[in-house]
Design a binder for these strands. Structure first.
Length: 211
DNA sequence: AACATCCACAACCGCAACCTA
DNA sequence: TTAGGTTGCGGTTGTGGATGT
């Protein structure tokens, strides 16, 4: 299997892995496009980066997912949707690719029968006030607007992310609890990308609250 | 034993954001 | 300001092993 520019594709061999590991040991991460030039590897920089981040990096945990990890992923997916990098960032040692694969092959069969593509989240950009919950109840305007101030731009312009008020933290905390206790799709519609960034500023313990 | 099908995972692709000269 | 290069993300596809017939 060979790409148009002479780059090899498909599974990596042990020899290729060793070359990549040695390169990173000497030069460190980054400058991925230099790797094929410097080492002679017949792989594009992008492929090298992926191979390192998803498999070769010592920080990557291999093997089966534990029950704790699965629970965490399920909760985070209820909260964040298909934001795999954000989810993986909260699961020590696991990469976004691992989390995504695990969800798609195993967990989605148990918990995620509905498709949660990017549109599902981006559709929240429209400030619809007619969002139904899982029982078909239409939420009132006050309910859907409770997180308006977290939306893109507004928070970033007016507030240092490091200076989140206690009221906001409490409100967020309560909302996250509700989302995790009632894992339904409509909660996803309340999370804008701006809120995702906002959430990223919190410790995991602040977001994930056991029942 | 041979073939077909399924499943899990690794890797690729396209796109967008970010960086820098 | 902008164009080109780099990096990161999420969806999708390909591969190989496991399992079923």
């Amino acid at each position: 299997m060979e790409a148009e520019h002479g780059n090899k594709k498909g599974l990596w061999t042990q020899e290729e892995d060793m070359i990549l590991i040695e390169y990173i040991r000497v030069h460190g991460r980054g400058q991925w496009n230099r790797i094929p030039k410097v080492t002679g590897l017949k792989r594009c920089g992008k492929s090298c980066r992926l191979r390192w981040l998803n498999y070769l990096s010592p920080s990557v945990k291999h093997g089966d997912f534990s029950q704790e990890e699965e629970d965490l992923i399920i909760r985070l997916h209820n909260l964040l949707g298909n934001r795999w990098s954000l989810i993986a960032g909260r699961v020590p040692g696991r990469t976004d690719n691992q989390v995504k694969n695990h969800w798609n092959t195993r967990l989605s069969k148990k918990f995620g029968n509905k498709k949660r593509k990017r549109e599902a989240v981006s559709s929240s950009e429209t400030h619809s006030t007619h969002i139904e919950d899982h029982s078909g109840r239409v939420l009132g305007e006050s309910e859907t607007l409770s997180f308006e101030h977290f939306r893109d731009g507004e928070m970033a312009e007016n507030q240092d992310p490091g200076e989140k008020s206690i009221e906001e933290a409490d409100s967020l905390h309560q909302h996250c609890n509700e989302s995790l206790l009632i894992p339904t799709d409509y909660h996803l519609n309340l999370f804008s990308p701006g809120l995702m960034e906002f959430l990223d500023g919190y410790r995991l313990d602040d977001l994930i609250c056991q029942n």
